[in-house]
Design a protein around this nucleic acid. Structure first.
Lengths: 240, 240
DNA sequence: TGACAATGACTGACCAGTCAGTCATATATA
DNA sequence: TATATATGACTGACTGGTCAGTCATTGTCA
């Protein structure tokens, strides 16, 4: 029997064989090493395949969840034979964990990057973070990764731990620092906010979930919502 | 491919299981009109078993997710043979959906109940809701149900739709009404809040997720966090 | 040409869903 | 009330299909 019976849509079979499959996603493609060449090197092509497998696995895991994903489908989507997956990953679980890992790192970088404008207000900094987060995460494949972690986390403690260490604790520490800075500068009145940096990001989390589950019922202007949230923290402003 | 799921026709089998039981409503209703029998009827014991199956299924689905849950395990946990499950539910998916349904109803009732003290401030009302929600949901089996919906929702559009209809849209409408009341009474300054009632409940949602995934890394005092959140909306107070 | 990458047919475990048979209980009959 | 018969809830061995992981074979590069 098939797991998710009502599964809305499958990638449909007959997925193009060769590399065409990888083109399915607008993924990074950077592969900067010294590319420009049509993958002459053997090691290089191997790395490309690895990438393709990860990209395909991401699509499948997001769409089906861990247990319901078939490695045959991943292989097909990646334009690779199933055995090839096992040349790169010990087993299904290792693939899943690696996937989360490689999805998270650029996410963190993305947020850690973008050095705030020097003279900017704390509000501007937070709004910048939030805008980046909402644009780059909510409603995108990355947002689905977050959902995936929420979904599978309890069954993959290592994944949850990793996510907590690499993303949550760091992110919250950053937010806390920002809040304390805001309090010191007099932009934020509510001093207790520093005890619960989660409050600062809660609307962004909710936005991610909303986009995944309910946007078709009621679209949500996440950025506008977040701005309203910031008005609560920093006081009115409405510069739109 | 797999015909079973569709299976609208039971005539194929003269067997004609009492799959009528699967018919949305707990059957009990039908016969008992003039009976008034004490109890230990067949029908009653059947209803008990149905309950046991649902309870067992809840544990298993929460722990394993939909795809990874084995009905053999559910049966064992319920103290029932596997076939018995199929006397009460059409298939695994129907069991899952019924489970969500029966888990949600008391949840909604729980929140809809408790009529707010007449003279209470809006803040008190909201705080009452939040306390109930956090105590009864976050960190309990019900919270895991919410997580389960987030996890499986995309693969079970019917479940997501049901949840949106029965819980989300109603809850938000209620919150919006409360916010507008608060604005009218002058307790809430930020008028835009009524456009995003999600902001009011966001910390509660985050608390649910946090308890599921990260409480072992860093416990979270959800109620205190929510109170701090309310301070942002209603202005300081701190009556603890 | 030798070494290694890639393949995909294959295997064995696994599991949703079935159904022929059992038996406790309800009903009919004496 | 006691006995016979009917009912249908319940069981669990079984089937048919699925899929993670393997490995002998084939292809390709240096």
């Amino acid at each position: 029997m098939r797991p998710s019976t009502k599964a809305p849509s499958k990638p449909a079979k007959s997925r193009a064989v060769s590399s065409a499959a990888a083109a399915k996603t607008p993924k990074v493609v950077s592969k900067k090493v010294e590319a420009t060449k049509p993958a002459s090197n053997r090691a290089e092509r191997a790395a490309e395949r690895r990438e393709a497998i990860i990209a395909a696995a991401m699509d499948e895991f997001i769409a089906q969840g861990f247990a319901a994903t078939r490695l045959d489908d991943v292989a097909k989507r990646a334009g690779v034979a199933k055995g090839t997956i096992y040349l790169h990953f010990k087993d299904k679980e290792a693939l899943f964990e690696e996937l989360i890992r490689t999805a998270i790192v650029p996410l963190v970088n993305r947020l850690a990057a973008g050095p705030p404008p020097v003279g900017a207000s704390v509000r501007d900094m937070v709004e910048g973070f939030a805008r980046t987060f909402i644009e780059e995460v909510a409603g995108t494949r990355r947002g689905d990764i977050v959902r995936l972690i929420v979904a599978e986390g309890p069954r993959f403690p290592e994944v949850a731990d990793f996510y907590y260490r690499e993303v949550v604790s760091r992110g919250l520490a950053g937010m806390r620092a920002l809040i304390e800075f805001g309090i010191a500068r007099g932009e934020i009145q509510q001093k207790d906010l520093a005890r619960f940096p989660q409050l600062l990001v809660a609307p962004a989390i909710v936005a991610v979930i909303w986009q995944s589950l309910f946007s078709k019922h009621a679209p949500l202007d996440a950025i506008e919502m977040f701005r309203t949230h910031l008005d609560l923290i920093f006081g009115e402003r409405r510069t739109t």
